[in-house]
Design a protein around this nucleic acid. Sequence first.
DNA 1: CACAATTACGAGGGTCGTAAAAATG
DNA 2: CATTTTTACGACCCTCGTAATTGTG
Lengths: 286, 286
Amino acid sequence: MIEIYMLVQLVAIADCGTMSKAAEHLHLSQPALSRTVNKLEDMIGVKLFERGKNKVELNDNGRLAVELARKIIDDNNALTERVRAFDLSHRTISVISCAPAPLWQLVPTLSEQFPDMKISSEMKYHEDFLNELTNGSCQILVTPFEVSEDNIICKRFFEEQLYLSVPPAHPLAGYDEVHFSDLDGETMLLFSDLGFWHEVNHKHTPNTKYIVQSEYDALDELIKASALPSFSSSVTLKMPQHGNRVNIPIADDAAKATFYCCWRKEDNKRFKGLAKWLDDARGDTF
Amino acid sequence: MIEIYMLVQLVAIADCGTMSKAAEHLHLSQPALSRTVNKLEDMIGVKLFERGKNKVELNDNGRLAVELARKIIDDNNALTERVRAFDLSHRTISVISCAPAPLWQLVPTLSEQFPDMKISSEMKYHEDFLNELTNGSCQILVTPFEVSEDNIICKRFFEEQLYLSVPPAHPLAGYDEVHFSDLDGETMLLFSDLGFWHEVNHKHTPNTKYIVQSEYDALDELIKASALPSFSSSVTLKMPQHGNRVNIPIADDAAKATFYCCWRKEDNKRFKGLAKWLDDARGDTF
DNA sequence: CACAATTACGAGGGTCGTAAAAATG
DNA sequence: CATTTTTACGACCCTCGTAATTGTG
């Protein structure tokens, strides 16, 4: 029987050019390689190398064998990876959300409903967003728009309203509401991973300078310490507040988003509990 | 490192259903199998079986692993076969001829010109005949027609004339020539592997009964012993004759064939000697 | 009690490394 | 003489088989 370790040694010789180099590369002695090669030739019944007294070189047979061996080795390594990935995918629920706020509620709920599953969440938003769900990159997708496709279940999650957050001394602090146009050109503090909101801001306040901070705690400190305006939302306002800030709703339509929770129809049975939670909790959660 | 023998054992369990059956099938003990499976699971880091105290059964991970393993094992076996075949094809010149007579001269000549090559010859004739050459089934093809294609070299070989061979007492024995129409409906002795001539006969004497014999020596005996007519040709007439027979040329055009020797243009250099032999020997050989 | 899988232990095969030999540029 | 491959020999790892154990139908 030809074993994998033989093919690995064969390929190493092909890659390194000489047996000595290959032996070093494999942390093996030359004799070991030499024997393996001879054994391979015996088993296949065909010479794989042209032998000079002082050198060996692959012949046509050998080159073919190396080519085939590479594929077998790759497939063999892929077996481990694929089985692991398959297993993981059956023990993991992947969530992709267009914005951070939905994850704050959704991830804990999923952890509770699926105690022996790992919940993996990711935040991103792009043109081909829906594809993340259909191509299997995630089991649950949170979108800022309603989805009506045959194979996808889509349930309304909640609405988030964007606020401007400023110190009391700020010129805009007295207003009852503001517009994106009031903010364009300002310098603002911004959390880097806003996903969907990131695009909204760029579209409506193209001239605003953002001081982006990816560490949430550091951003918190910055907001407390500086007089620069920042964003908050109907969701963050219900969480423990930091500092002394005035929060003013942004009146534009674009500052209000409705999030939807989507999954594939084939997972409907699995997420029956989640569907119920979405129906029930819609009103009182936020 | 996952080795082939492990995958073989895994697949055997999947095929046989239980470890005991698999062990028997592999001429191995159950403990050996049990250990290999545990080792595989350790290395992959994933459970492959659902374990009852008294039984093991593949789970989803296991089924995937088995599927991948099968392919690896197949590829691994194929490596040996493919390298052997590749090597053989480089040490063999395959000739396919539409009729037997060309091989009688061609094969010895090739053996002489390529002393360390194995000459393999086959006789067949069908619609897609030329394809045998272009698809690599052979390096040399003998056709009953001239070939003029860009990638194929075609050289005239020789002409063969078909004769009717009858005992002196036969009604046709006195004729200077006969036609296929004279033979239609007769019962004749025939060598089974006539290739191209077989089709010619069937076309022009559809009502003739043939007593087909595939052993050449046996046919020889039959011809000597019986009074039935048989075929001979300009080629066989130059070989030692058997029995006391009258040979009468068949006058139809179809009873005369010109053979051509063809090979791929890329082999032209290789067969330079053969080309010269065909040019030189054309006149005197037959 | 028959059957299936696992655990324990000793035997044997095979691969490995070290050392030495042979051959080349 | 350095470099490279091959051969020889002994050590060790690892797989295997036998036998005993556990658990089930």
